[in-house]
Nucleic acid binder design. Structure first.
Length: 175
DNA sequence: TGCACGATCTCG
DNA sequence: GAGATCGTGCAT
């Protein structure tokens, strides 16, 4: 007797060890799992932004290798979190090959708009810096096996960067 | 050792 | 439109 099983498959590191611009649209509509104090919660990813390499003036890696950016130089599949404006933790997934610093910022989840609020509901903190999405029991991504339509737009909050980088359409939003 | 500032949000 | 609030990177 045959039965159909719908697999909610955790994404492995190979998923993240590709170029951020290829991965970003694929992340839309996927499920973010977060376990807080033993309670498992699920959220749909609805908006992301790509930060790509040392050349990208808006990317933290444009300052080179530092204590903060170190994780971005690792292979894809790790988490990059940092505190901004003294109060908001930003959630990023490291992507690409080793020594190709890049990351994808999770800007919004379903019903949760803005990266600061995302960090708040997920109870992010420094302890998640470098967390491995493939093996963590605190946070990971699962495939939703559904296709989504998306739009692109310039990234938010990077007016300090030069025009070329400001104008990149590296924000991906689910339709 | 000090200082300027930021991949934001909320309130008025 | 401004304030909250603090780690980071770079100058001193």
């Amino acid at each position: 007797m045959k039965s159909k099983v719908i697999l909610m498959k955790r994404l492995t590191n190979t998923f993240f060890q590709r170029e951020a611009l290829d991965i970003a649209p694929l992340l839309l509509g996927k499920k973010l799992i977060r376990v807080i104090e033993g309670v498992k919660r699920e959220y749909l990813i609805t908006e992301v932004e790509v930060y790509l390499g040392e050349e990208d003036a808006a990317c933290h890696a444009s300052k080179g290798r530092t204590d903060r950016t170190e994780v971005m130089y690792a292979e894809g599949g790790l988490i990059y979190v940092y505190l901004i404006y003294g109060m908001y933790w930003m959630l990023n997934f490291v992507t690409g090959k080793e020594n190709h610093p890049q990351a994808i910022l999770i800007r919004a989840l379903e019903n949760i708009n803005g990266p600061g609020r995302v960090g708040k509901v997920l109870h992010l903190d420094k302890s998640l810096y470098g967390e491995d999405l493939a093996t963590s029991n605190r946070i990971w991504i699962e495939d939703k096996l559904q296709k989504v339509d998306f739009t692109t737009a310039p990234r938010i909050g990077i007016d300090y960067a030069s025009e070329v980088w400001r104008n990149k359409l590296w924000r991906f939003t689910i339709k």
